[in-house]
Design a binder for these strands. Structure first.
Ligand SMILES: NC(=O)c1ccc[n+]([C@@H]2O[C@H](COP(=O)([O-])OP(=O)(O)OC[C@H]3O[C@@H](n4cnc5c(N)ncnc54)[C@H](O)[C@@H]3O)[C@@H](O)[C@H]2O)c1
Ligand SMILES: NC(=O)c1ccc[n+]([C@@H]2O[C@H](COP(=O)([O-])OP(=O)(O)OC[C@H]3O[C@@H](n4cnc5c(N)ncnc54)[C@H](O)[C@@H]3O)[C@@H](O)[C@H]2O)c1
Lengths: 234, 234
DNA sequence: GTAAATTTGTTATTTCAATAACAAGTATTA
DNA sequence: TAATACTTGTTATTGAAATAACAAATTTAC
């Protein structure tokens, strides 16, 4: 599926002249395509649940408020082809997106900070994805250590290195108070995770071989506020 | 500040020939610039708290892992100018970002669904921004109605129209179970909000005059998982 | 059986965002 | 005082993402 297409052409404007350039895609998908694939799968699973077997690009597009071309392009990038006038086979597409997003043996996630946000997240992820599950939580508060939420055990923060290695955890979610963010990130990196998702408002430094995603709800809300107040100009 | 600069040039390639085009920026800032301005302010407030009075573009850049040019360009877009070799006056910059992101009389926010996530959010936003505060929560559960979290009162969902209008609420955050998402979005739109931020995984439809932002934590984590497993290819 | 209507897959173009390049001004150093 | 290093503001260029355009294939309608 993945290897019938390992080169792709695009144009670059070089000294004002258009030049055809051969680039290698199949290595890595565009950022935005990855996000959309996750969203497609989420809703394809619902369609499948309703007994639907095939779906058109414009149906997927409508669900996500994007254009059918966008959908077809994303699907092209992962090397899947639908059937003319029948659309895409939903189960096949779900399976292929799975091959791309998931690792064969899954990836395990640790969450550091089992406070209000941490516990809400543990509950939300509970049993949602086979191949991506929270396998441990860490906290510094004696009240929390040893407890279990939705099957996720809370370990003392001191054991992070040991447990992460033991359980082969590759991803960390950070939801500790801002003062503890820096130490938490270092501990996760030390322990060998390859990806970090931080929900704290404090910027983090990681080495090049760790993928970092930072999300702050206040920034998101301020953005909504800005565009809401200027809505007539959009 | 805002009006000494109401036009801007850029090039467009029209039939393979570069054409100089005059576009109007000051109307609306780029999406990504708005996000960064929120982040700049967040950390400028911290710098100010430490007694720092001026800051260089490369210092801001380091905090946020971006380039100094990016910072200067963003600041240029909002029409602020720093002092050569002294950098930007932190308080002035904070004030100007405030003028842009905030509305003069502030904007009020409602949150619908006071469950695990909803309550965590209420707590997180508590007293963080003068000009953007959660002024009401709505829920359908009799257990929750009438309670108060961090000064935010929980109203019955039936009163949403009345309260939103009464309190002049312009933004809604959705954190209800997926089955209730559609009805919640409609109710918010009906009541007249101009912006919606949804934390549910269910896609929403809104009319053109409402700004919508959807964020799903699972998509975010799946993206981290994808790039973490392919980290050596980035 | 032919024409019209769909729908995919792919290339071409446009739009949006980030980076590079550099002129101009200011402080510092020799 | 002249040269150097620094830092801003802005334009030019490059790069990434989205959209448009369209050929090819298949079904439906007549
Ligand atoms: N509550 C929200 O909805 C929300 C939203 C966005 C961001 N955040 C951010 O997420 C973080 C957590 O928020 P919260 O509301 O859950 O706070 P919280 O205080 O409820 O939870 C923080 C948890 O981290 C634990 N902790 C403290 N220091 C630690 C350390 N060094 N190692 C391990 N665990 C430690 C605490 O014991 C506590 O259980 C904060 O940085 C906050 O800014 C929260
Ligand atoms: N928990 C998380 O961290 C998390 C993360 C991401 C997304 N989400 C999503 O956010 C939503 C809420 O998650 P949660 O964990 O807080 O769930 P929850 O069940 O704890 O809370 C949902 C709340 O909504 C209320 N509610 C139900 N129907 C309602 C209606 N029609 N009108 C108003 N209120 C209503 C319930 O009474 C409850 O208080 C879900 O869609 C979930 O998928 C949750």
């Amino acid at each position: 599926m993945y290897d019938n297409k390992n080169e792709y052409f695009c144009f670059s404007t070089n000294r004002n002249r258009l030049t055809k350039v051969k680039i290698n895609t199949m290595n890595i998908l565009p950022d935005k395509t990855v996000e959309r694939l996750s969203q497609y799968r989420r809703n394809l699973l619902i369609c499948d649940g309703k007994g639907k077997t095939h779906i058109f690009s414009h149906e997927i597009a409508n669900i996500h408020h994007i254009t059918p071309v966008q959908v077809r392009r994303d699907i092209m990038l992962i090397g899947y082809t639908g059937t003319l006038r029948k659309g895409y086979n939903i189960l096949e597409l779900i399976a292929l997106i799975g091959e791309i997003l998931d690792k064969e043996d899954g990836q395990r996630v640790a969450i550091v900070g089992a406070g209000n946000l941490g516990r809400a997240i543990i509950q939300y992820f509970h049993n949602r994805r086979d191949k991506l599950s929270i396998s441990a939580a860490f906290d510094s508060s004696p009240d929390k250590i040893g407890q279990e939420y939705d099957g996720v055990k809370i370990y003392p923060i001191e054991d992070i290195d040991k447990i992460v290695k033991e359980k082969n955890i590759t991803i960390g979610i950070i939801s500790v108070p801002v003062v503890a963010v820096k130490a938490t990130a270092s501990a996760l990196v030390e322990a060998g995770v390859k990806g970090i998702l931080s929900y704290t408002p404090r910027p983090i430094d990681v080495p090049e071989n760790v993928y970092l995603e930072e999300y702050d709800m206040i920034t998101s809300l301020e953005k909504v506020a800005y565009f809401a107040k200027n809505i007539e100009k959009i």
